[in-house]
Design a binder for these strands. Structure first.
Length: 359
DNA sequence: ATGCATGAGGC
DNA sequence: CCTCATGCATA
């Protein structure tokens, strides 16, 4: 319990093991700064009461912050203190832009191709390795809301400026958008994404291909800027545990693969598989494990202030006896989690059906 | 399936 | 130091 031995955390990662410096599409992010720059009328009330709240939060965490906690201690519960941007469970919406705009110079050298053959979209189960991983970084930009103040440097006018808040597919808005000449683009429709993810998984399974296989096969598609993806990503795509933008960016790629794979399957073309060359010998990364009690505390802190300052993070880290970096990353991941397409709003719709997404 | 981590890109 | 897309390691 409570052992967080980590190893690579320090910084001994010098030669990016899993990414190619070359191909990277610009990430058009839009403005996270808006959140931070939010003119909090209350300034930084946390600065003052933070300690008290945090302590209390932690105290509560020790007891049971999972539920009825708000009334327990009669204190100022986070429930209503969320002056800060607080997460827009559904306030953000589909930025009506296109997902992939990564046109690089395909410096394709060869990108492996273990099987030696061409598009290996056929079921090639196994082959636990990491041949060539690269990223494709589609286009992402957080679509915030409000503030006419958009970022300067990041170009890509997709941010649309205002409008963006949920509802690209809202009946009325959809009509308005259409009239405006813009199209809701079926690809950005949450329902469509959900439906596709479901279809994708089903057909993938029918083809007898694993998530890992799909990821690796993507590299064989040789689409510009598209390389292999991990099992994790494929899994997350299928389960919708990705951000809306990420889903949109990945959809066309996976769709392309699916079509190719089915086409090949149709031809019954089964070619003598090939030996999977295991590069082998890579260094292992050790994963820190945050114990339950510490995790509970972190959650309590997070409920009060999802974006603690560096100093606060340091304080929390010390209090919980965790590395500062571990705590920082935990918060980052936690924030990212809330933005996942599925895990927000209602857990009942995470499955499929009709949808009512809420992001 | 998911927790913790890395790194590019950006202020 | 953040956000985001992604991945390794692991439960």
């Amino acid at each position: 319990m409570t052992m967080s031995m980590y190893s690579t955390t320090d910084k001994m990662k010098m030669s990016a093991p899993s990414c190619f410096p070359g191909r990277y599409s610009p990430s058009y992010r839009s403005s996270e700064q808006m959140r931070r720059c939010m003119p909090n009328p209350s300034g930084d009330i946390f600065a003052g009461i933070n300690d008290g709240i945090l302590s209390r939060a932690e105290a509560l965490a020790a007891v049971d912050i999972q539920k009825h906690q708000a009334q327990h201690v009669h204190s100022q519960m986070p429930s209503q203190i969320k002056h800060d941007v607080m997460y827009h469970h559904h306030s953000m919406s589909g930025p009506p832009q296109r997902p992939l705009q990564m046109h690089h110079s395909m410096d394709q050298l060869d990108m492996l191709d273990p099987t030696g053959s061409m598009t290996t979209l056929a079921p090639i189960s196994e082959s636990p390795l990491t041949p060539t991983h690269q990223h494709l970084h589609g286009s992402y930009h957080s679509m915030n809301h409000m503030m006419s103040h958009h970022h300067p440097g990041t170009l890509s006018g997709h941010t649309g400026g205002h409008h963006g808040h949920s509802a690209v597919h809202h009946p009325v808005i959809t009509a308005a958008v259409a009239a405006a000449g813009l199209h809701p683009d079926t690809d950005t429709d949450p329902r469509e994404l959900e439906a596709f993810a479901e279809r994708f998984k089903q057909r993938r399974i029918k083809l007898g291909v694993t998530q890992a296989d799909v990821g690796k096969a993507l590299a064989n598609l040789k689409l510009p800027g598209v390389g292999a993806l991990s099992q994790s990503t494929i899994c997350r795509f299928e389960s919708l545990t990705l951000s809306h933008n990420n889903m949109i960016a990945l959809k066309p790629i996976l769709q392309a693969w699916l079509e190719e794979a089915e086409a090949q399957a149709k031809n019954k073309r089964r070619d003598p598989d090939a030996p999977s060359v295991l590069p082998a010998g890579e260094k292992k990364r050790k994963r820190t494990s945050i114990a339950a009690p510490e995790k509970r505390s972190l959650e309590a802190y997070f409920a009060v202030q999802p974006r603690p300052s560096g100093e606060k993070i340091a304080a929390i880290a010390e209090k919980l006896d965790l590395k500062k970096n571990v705590v920082r990353v935990w918060f980052c991941n936690q924030r990212q989690k809330q933005k996942r397409i599925v895990s927000s709003v209602t857990p009942s719709m995470t499955g499929h059906g009709s949808a009512g997404f809420g992001y």
